[in-house]
């Protein structure tokens, strides 16, 4: 794959569309699939699902705690509930339900966090979901999936139906380019290499992966060979891929549209920091450190240093610390 900064504008996509389309397709073949939402039929792109399967769309109204509990009850009845809501409310308002009713109880509920990160830019921090990765990483027994593009979004839905288990899927709304090859496979618990490199590794998730690829192309032009890893799974965490990056390249940069306290960067740091001395490479962790000011998603990504240009600088700084 070649992506260059000066290429023609790329097609970009809202992953919710692929999510909803895949869900409807699978629901036609598998009557166990039901959807649960909090009045978010529109924002979760569930209109087509509701129209085709009106009995299998359970809209509990604006009541997220009940929504997640209902999901657990449906799962315990042998159904496969996709509980869909804007990510900040799904994870924040009902965090204790996610902990007790889903993760601890091990009810196979598929929690679908719509429009995560700063997708609701100007609506502000109440509507941003940048704490979700930190909060949910603290829950044993819960898979955390961040599909990078349309194909991975479809694969995440398919995997959830094929092997129902407690899962959170971060379904992106902010439009991003397709990243993975058509024949790629989304493997549970694997961080996937999307570009080979030997000097520095950028481990990115979600919206930041395509930006990492852009940065890698720029760095290549500067003589810096850059590996890019797509952290589509944050839990289970791919310790091997992270350790290999530390051992095989000289520095690591992480990038996430999330708070740095406990997210992807913290996960990588917790692995790298416990490796043997020679593998404890310099690390830069890019993400949010504070509640966002007013601005569009793109403005805010730039504000928090989450662009390909910032990634280039971070990679060079990390290498300078070797």
């Amino acid at each position: 794959m070649t992506l260059t900064a000066d290429a023609a504008p790329r097609a970009v996509y809202d992953n919710r569309t692929a999510f909803a389309d895949e869900l409807v397709q699978l629901a036609r073949e598998d009557s166990r699939i039901v959807a649960v939402c909090n009045d978010s039929v529109g924002s979760s792109n569930l209109t087509a699902f509701r129209d085709e399967f009106p009995d299998r769309l359970i809209n509990v109204g604006i009541a997220e705690q009940n929504m997640v509990g209902v999901g657990a009850g449906l799962a315990s009845s042998g159904l496969i509930p996709f509980v869909c809501a804007a990510a900040p409310f799904l994870t924040g308002r009902s965090l204790e339900q996610v902990k007790a009713d889903v993760a601890y109880s091990q009810h196979p509920v598929i929690l679908c966090g719509m429009s995560p990160g700063m997708a609701y830019g100007e609506l502000g921090p109440t509507h941003h979901s940048v704490e979700d990765l930190s909060w949910l990483r603290a829950l044993p027994g819960l898979d955390i999936v961040v599909p990078v593009d349309r194909l991975q979004t479809r694969q995440a839905v398919r995997n959830a139906v094929a092997h129902p288990r407690p899962t959170f899927i971060r379904v992106g709304r902010h439009k991003t380019p397709d990243v993975v090859a058509d024949d790629s496979v989304l493997e549970r618990g694997r961080i996937q290499q999307v570009r080979a490199g030997s000097d520095v590794t950028i481990i990115a998730t979600g919206t930041l992966v395509s930006r990492a690829l852009d940065a890698a192309a720029t760095l290549e032009g500067q003589g810096v060979s850059t590996r890019v890893l797509n952290a589509a799974y944050l839990a289970p965490l791919d310790v091997a891929a992270i350790s290999a990056a530390a051992r095989e390249t000289r520095a690591i940069v992480t990038a996430e549209e999330a708070n740095v306290a406990g997210g992807l960067g913290a996960a990588v740091a917790s692995i790298v920091g416990q490796l043997e001395a020679g593998a404890r490479v310099p690390l830069r962790i890019l993400g949010l450190h504070e509640f966002a000011p007013t601005g569009s998603t793109d403005f805010l990504l730039d504000y928090f240093g989450l662009t390909d240009a910032h990634l280039v600088v971070a990679a060079r700084e990390a290498l300078a610390n070797v």
Binding site: V34, V36, D55, R56, I58, Q65, N66, M67, V68, G69, V70, G71, A72, G73, L74, A75, S76, S77, G78, L79, P81, Q97, D101
Partner: peptide, 13 residues
């Protein structure tokens, strides 16, 4: 809430 989900699930199944 979980009981409500079960009651819906029981009805659906």
């Amino acid at each position: 809430p979980v009981a409500v989900g079960q009651a819906v699930g029981v009805r659906l199944t």
